[in-house]
Nucleic acid binder design. Structure first.
Ligand code: FES
Ligand code: FES
Lengths: 151, 151
DNA sequence: GTAATTTGTAACAAGACAAGTGACATGAGT
DNA sequence: ACTCATGTCACTTGTCTTGTTACAAATTAC
C-alpha cells in the first residue's frame, strides 16, 4: 500500500466502463481492481459528485459513465478525487521563526511547486480517450487473447 | 508527520553548522529541529557515509561539515538520504496483465518521471551556499534580533 | 408487497513508513 | 575511572490509504 493508487485505479475503471455499455456494479469493478466493493464506492463517490459517472441502486443498477471519455482529462479525475497529496516529501515545521528554515523551505517549495505544475499540466493535457486509443492500438497489435482479467 | 521532512531538516542543519565552526552535538541539533538526538543521528548517518559531514565521539565531539556549502547541492543531500520516495501517488498493480492498466500506468509514469526529473534538476542546480546567501540577505535586511531559536 | 439487488455510509482493523523514544554498547577526551 | 558523545537496536506513535464488516435506503423483479 506504499502509494496512493486511486488515480490509476479510477482511470483504469473509467476506460473499462466505456467498453461495455451496461452498468457495472461495484462488485464487478472490485474484481477488476482486485479489491473490495466498498473501496470502489468510496473512491468513485468523488467522480459522481463531479458528474463524470452516475450510480443507480437496485436491480440492474451500478455505475455508468456520464460523459464521453473525450471530455474527461486525467486532471479532472485527479481533482474529483479531492486532489490527493502528490508529494511524499515536504517542508519541516520545527522552528517556524528561523530564517534558515524559511529560506530552505522557500527553495524547496518553489521547486516542488514547479514540478507539481508540470505534472498537473500534463495530466490536464491527456484525455481518457487518448489512453483508450493507445490501448486499442496495442490491443489490435497483439492477439485479442492476451487481454482481460476474469471480468 | 504528514510528509517526509528529512531533506528540509538536513538542509537547515547543514547551513546552521556552517555558521558556528565548532562541532554540533546531536543534542544541540535535536533542539534546533525540535526533535530527538536519535532521529538526528539516524538521519545524518547518510550524510556521513557520503562524506558531507564527519562525526566524532567523546568530549568535544559532535558533527562537523566535511565540505564547504558551495560543494553540496540539494540533490546531493537528497541522494545521501537514500533518495526517499518523492511522490505520494503511484501506479496500481491490481491486474498486471491488463493492457488498460498498463496503458494508464505508462501515461502516469511518464508524467511523474518528467516531473521528478524537473524537480531533481532544480535540486541539483542549487548549492547550500546559495540558500545561505539568501538567508544572509534577509538577515541583514531585518534587525538581527528576529533570527534564531533557543540554540 | 415481499424478496432480491445494489448503492451509501459509518466504524474499525491492517499495513506501511517517518518520526519519536528508551536502552545500552562503543569510543574519545579529561 | 569518569564523563561525554556517537552508533544502533527495538519498540511505540501518528497518519494515511486500503481492506472489511455491518446495516440502512432505494430500486427493480416476482
Ligand atoms: S481489469 Fe482490465 S481487463 Fe479486467
Ligand atoms: S534552528 Fe534555525 S535558528 Fe535555531
Amino acid at each position: 500500500m506504499r502509494n496512493d493508487s486511486r488515480l490509476s485505479r479510477m482511470l483504469h475503471v473509467l476506460i473499462h466502463m466505456d467498453r461495455h455499455q451496461d452498468a457495472a456494479t461495484s462488485e464487478m469493478i472490485a474484481k477488476m481492481l482486485n479489491t473490495n466493493p466498498v473501496v470502489v464506492r468510496r473512491t468513485m463517490a468523488g467522480l459522481r459528485e463531479e458528474g463524470y459517472v452516475r450510480s443507480e441502486k437496485g436491480h440492474g443498477g451500478g455505475w455508468r459513465l456520464a460523459r464521453p471519455l473525450s471530455e474527461i482529462t486525467l486532471l479532472d479525475v485527479y481533482n474529483a478525487l479531492g486532489e490527493p497529496h502528490l508529494f511524499a516529501i515536504g517542508p519541516a515545521d520545527d522552528q517556524p521563526q528561523c530564517l534558515v528554515e524559511q529560506a530552505v523551505n522557500a527553495v524547496l517549495a518553489d521547486a516542488m511547486k514547479k514540478a507539481e505544475a508540470l505534472l498537473l499540466r500534463r495530466l490536464g493535457g491527456v484525455t481518457l480517450e487518448k489512453i483508450a486509443a493507445e490501448f486499442e492500438a496495442k490491443m489490435t497489435a497483439r492477439s485479442a487473447a492476451a487481454y482481460s482479467c476474469a471480468s
